[in-house]
């Protein structure tokens, strides 16, 4: 019996009300806005200057100014996005642990699955809402800070690339933690192992000595930041191409979808 759109919408509303009461959402959005604002303030550390040459006309000066403003605004997106990665590897495992893994022990899963909701829907809603909440909070944080510090100067191209890779990275981290939650059925294991795994990966596997075939799919944000402005990327220290960005993001997306499918497969066969 397929679920219709109304059923899914009602399930989303129920999951939002159960797991994300008003103060939780406000706190998460605030964290991202604060991190974004703090990161943008750090842009001053990077030297960016140009000199007017004799003979430059007003058009040349305007073009140079626009180019500089675009570089500044690209960096203003790249800096917070890079810092968000640290927030995400701490926040996402915690949210998945409390909203999904803890449901096994506190009776939430048993209660929910006794209502007419499919198991698949329950699992995808729980991890999907984490992805949606964290990614949209990050996007809001960047937008808020950009509009506050650099009004009317957003580089749309950079913005779209960085935000898309940010969403994909959040999905990858969330789907890893979802699988961990389903397999372990423990909030503690999900939180600590999830955070630990991604922290170790971030500090070790993101370094230039790791093969790009492993590095790019695991860290699509860093690939995108290096593509936008290689001087900003503290990890890669290399100029990446648009192809690298597409390869990294595409494979990260495929990996996160595969992990979610595997989680659903296990969850559907689990005894609650």
């Amino acid at each position: 019996m397929p679920e219709n759109r109304k059923d899914i919408f009602n399930s989303i509303r129920l999951e939002r009300n159960i797991s994300y009461p008003f103060p939780t959402i406000v706190s998460i959005v605030s964290i991202f806005i604060i991190v974004a604002a703090y990161s943008i303030l750090g842009i001053g550390r990077y030297n960016m200057s140009f000199y007017l040459s004799p003979g430059w006309n007003s058009t040349a000066i305007t073009e140079k100014l626009v180019e500089s403003v675009n570089t500044v605004s690209s960096r203003a997106i790249a800096f917070p996005i890079l810092d968000f990665v640290y927030v995400v590897v701490l926040l996402v495992p915690l949210l998945i642990a409390f909203n999904l893994a803890q449901g096994y022990s506190n009776g939430q899963m048993r209660t929910l699955l006794s209502y007419p909701i499919r198991r698949r829907t329950v699992l995808l809603l729980k991890s999907g809402l984490v992805i949606l909440l964290v990614s949209s909070s990050g996007t809001l944080g960047v937008l808020f800070s950009l509009l506050y510090f650099f009004p009317f100067s957003i580089s749309l191209n950079s913005f779209l690339i960085l935000i898309a890779t940010f969403w994909i990275s959040v999905s990858l981290i969330a789907s890893t933690c979802t699988l961990l939650a389903v397999v372990s059925r423990s909030a503690r294991i999900t939180a600590f192992v999830g955070m630990g795994l991604w922290m170790v990966a971030l500090s070790d596997l993101s370094m230039p000595y790791t093969h790009p075939l492993l590095r790019y799919p695991l860290f699509p944000i860093q690939v995108a930041v290096s593509y936008i402005d290689s001087s900003v990327s503290v990890f890669f220290r290399e100029q990446t191409t648009l192809f690298d960005v597409i390869f990294g993001s595409g494979s990260a997306l495929i990996l996160s979808v595969a992990l979610l499918i595997l989680s659903v497969f296990i969850f559907k066969r689990q005894e609650i």
Partner: peptide, 29 residues
């Protein structure tokens, strides 16, 4: 499941919701 009701021995009801809100949300399923 659409034709039955269940009360488990230790059910979970979200502490931050009100009974009215919870019953409205569950009823919509």
């Amino acid at each position: 499941l659409k034709q039955i009701g269940v009360l488990h021995e230790n059910p979970y009801f979200p502490p931050s919701m009100t009974p009215r809100q919870y019953l409205d949300d569950i009823g919509s399923l």
